[in-house]
Design a protein around this nucleic acid. Sequence first.
DNA 1: AAGTGGTCTAGACCACTCG
DNA 2: GAGTGGTCTAGACCACTTG
Lengths: 244, 244
Amino acid sequence: MRVDRNSVVPLYYQIQQRLLERINSGDFKSGDPLPSEMELSDNLSISRMTARQALKSLCQLGVAYSLRGKGTFVSRNKLAKDSRQLFSFSEEMNARGAKVQSKVLLFRIVSPDTEIAEALHLEPGSSVVQLRRIRCADSVPFCIETTHLPERLVPDILKTYDPATSLYHTLDESFSIHIVSANEVAEASVASGAESRLLRIKPKAPVFRFVRTAFLDTGEPAEFVRSVYRGDRCKVVSRLVRPV
Amino acid sequence: MRVDRNSVVPLYYQIQQRLLERINSGDFKSGDPLPSEMELSDNLSISRMTARQALKSLCQLGVAYSLRGKGTFVSRNKLAKDSRQLFSFSEEMNARGAKVQSKVLLFRIVSPDTEIAEALHLEPGSSVVQLRRIRCADSVPFCIETTHLPERLVPDILKTYDPATSLYHTLDESFSIHIVSANEVAEASVASGAESRLLRIKPKAPVFRFVRTAFLDTGEPAEFVRSVYRGDRCKVVSRLVRPV
DNA sequence: AAGTGGTCTAGACCACTCG
DNA sequence: GAGTGGTCTAGACCACTTG
């Protein structure tokens, strides 16, 4: 391992990156000790504080942990990275290498119910575009997703959008609608008869019900989604931080 | 502001705590600049690196943020924006004004199963303290919670801790164990016969199953919890952020 | 006793912001 | 130009773990 002292990249960051590469390449495995502070500072001819900063930064990323008197070790949890981020179903499944198929059940303009109208801050009388799909990954049904968009944000979407493709991609590209955040509420429930048929599970099998409101960078609500996920195919992973 | 140089409490931690108190008391408000590194080091007669460590620790907690050339400021959102917050059951219910009661089912030292041993990075042969409780809010049972702590972190806890009280509070006060983050996986499921009796719900009623591993600021895992929450009394609220 | 990380010092140079 | 945080050095003492 070497560092470039003429680089504008900070030394501690170079070391962090080298160690990350070696962890990802399997050079260091889960539970393995990383080089100690002294080892790094001797081998790389840097001060101990700089070596220490590199190792601490790995701890803050959740990639490693330190034990006084023992050393610094590679974490066994690789999960740490996917602290909950906002992905669409297509994006999430593509990232896992699964092939996404969608069966469109509804794609139409409707009057919103009061929960939707409130969540999307709609004027009385406004309409929404409603899109209900069964989402499958590798031919296995995962969820029934019903999304609602204020009609004024997506004029003519019924004519221009192919509802079997990624909605978020189309919103980005065709409508310049860039969703940046969302609030989501999950409930534990059981499948109704109709849901169980669509998801090919038993009636009263466990499911998650999600209600999500998604926002633009202006804070304006732009999407309201209700979805039902099979409980046997889906887990909700969260990264929690302790408030002070 | 003063520091106690004879205390066993680290200087940077004393300063962090004093600043936290002043933030919570409204002495520093959202967006206000905190004392600069030089200001702290001059006023308290400490080195700049120690002052810096105190301020950085506040940034890591999400309470403050630093801007090069400008200063260190109190965060506008005290809530960590992109994550849910980590609360113990007692804290969460007290915050809602509910009265917490706990019925202790188990409080003992056991050998961990392999999932626990791996999650807590335990040496072979190490023991854990196991605490299983039914947690009630206003006399209504909410969940069955089984927590595991490495025995070496909490010596004599069986003698010193009243298991009907807040565990996190005791970890903080009696053992200087400061939990700062956690990974959590939630599943949708249905109650077993035994669970339904303890939670006073019907068998096969919907429940959440949580598995949580909690960490110290060193990245060291310190707690492993399995819990079952009534589906009719509990929702999981998340704030999601779209990656860039 | 040797090695580890945790804390602390007293300096240094840099890039950045602002008046 | 004065003040800020970002990085870095070369020491130091400590508590802890392991052989």
